[in-house]
């Protein structure tokens, strides 16, 4: 069994199959891009892995441990950390407290000086080191995104789920962002990233999985996938048999 293994995952909302029998696997230390047009079920899949939504059927395993049906906090303690498509910070807490949360309530349950050290290190990593005591509600959008990544890192995760974390950055910030994710990858973190910015995907992910209308339509090397007629058809919105 692979490190992260998704077997025939299904999510049904009433009459809509948002995720329709998706299966793929990732090895430890791998970084994979999750592509697909809007509404193809990428975020729903992230929500299934992180437990934000229960799966209708199918199974998800991390490191041999079955995550299916577990509560969100249990899945978090198994080592799954995520960011949100619409950035979510804790506005009334300081930056340090924001980042401390997963260190304190995560699987290693740090407390006191050790939790603060991990929080400071994570803030340092995303370039927010000097502002640990500011209230998170006062941050700009970009800094909120950084804060969210720092929070995910402070969980010391086994696998990191990024939901369009690079979206909305300007070219300079984008370059920094790509470098930052590249660093995490170099340190051996397993990352599954939903992303629309193809240049970033090319730079970071050797392999991509592509979804369309809830189904997996490609799981291959990035350069192959980007030339794959099915993938192009999905993005251009053509009928797949055209």
């Amino acid at each position: 069994m692979s490190f992260l293994q998704i077997d025939k995952a299904v999510k049904q909302f009433g009459g809509l199959r948002a995720v329709d029998g998706v299966s793929f696997a990732m090895e430890r230390g791998e970084i994979v891009g999750l592509l697909g047009p809007n509404g193809s079920g990428k975020t729903t899949l992230i929500n299934l892995i992180s437990g934000a939504l229960p799966t209708t059927s199918g199974a998800i395993h991390l490191n041999g441990q079955n995550l299916t049906g577990l509560r969100r906090d249990r899945i978090a303690r198994e080592g799954v950390a995520r960011t949100f498509q619409l950035v979510r910070i804790l506005p009334s807490l300081s930056l340090r407290e924001n980042v401390m949360i997963p260190a304190v309530f995560g699987r290693k349950a740090h407390w006191g000086a050790e939790a603060e050290r991990i929080a400071s290190a994570a803030l340092d990593r995303v370039g927010l080191a000097g502002r640990a005591m500011t209230a998170a509600g006062d941050l700009t959008y970009i800094d909120q995104k950084r804060l969210e990544l720092a929070r995910a890192l402070a969980a010391e995760p086994e696998v990191l789920l990024l939901d369009e974390w690079l979206a909305g950055l300007n070219p300079t910030e984008l370059r920094d962002g790509v470098a930052l994710i590249g660093d995490l990858k170099a340190q051996g973190l397993t990352i599954l990233m939903v992303e629309h910015i193809i240049d970033a995907v090319r730079a970071l992910c050797p392999r991509v999985v592509v979804m369309n209308s809830g189904q997996l339509i490609a799981d291959e090397a990035t350069e192959v996938a980007l030339g794959d007629p099915r993938v192009i058809a999905a993005y251009l919105g053509e009928e797949s048999d055209a």
Binding site: R72, A76, R88, R107
Partner: peptide
């Protein structure tokens, strides 16, 4: 202590709290 911190996180955003490992 932890309970107080967890309550503050819940007050701000329950989804973040749960995904950070807090048993709501």
């Amino acid at each position: 202590n932890r309970l107080g911190l967890a309550l503050r996180v819940i007050g701000d955003d329950e989804a973040v709290a749960a995904h950070s490992g807090i048993h709501l």
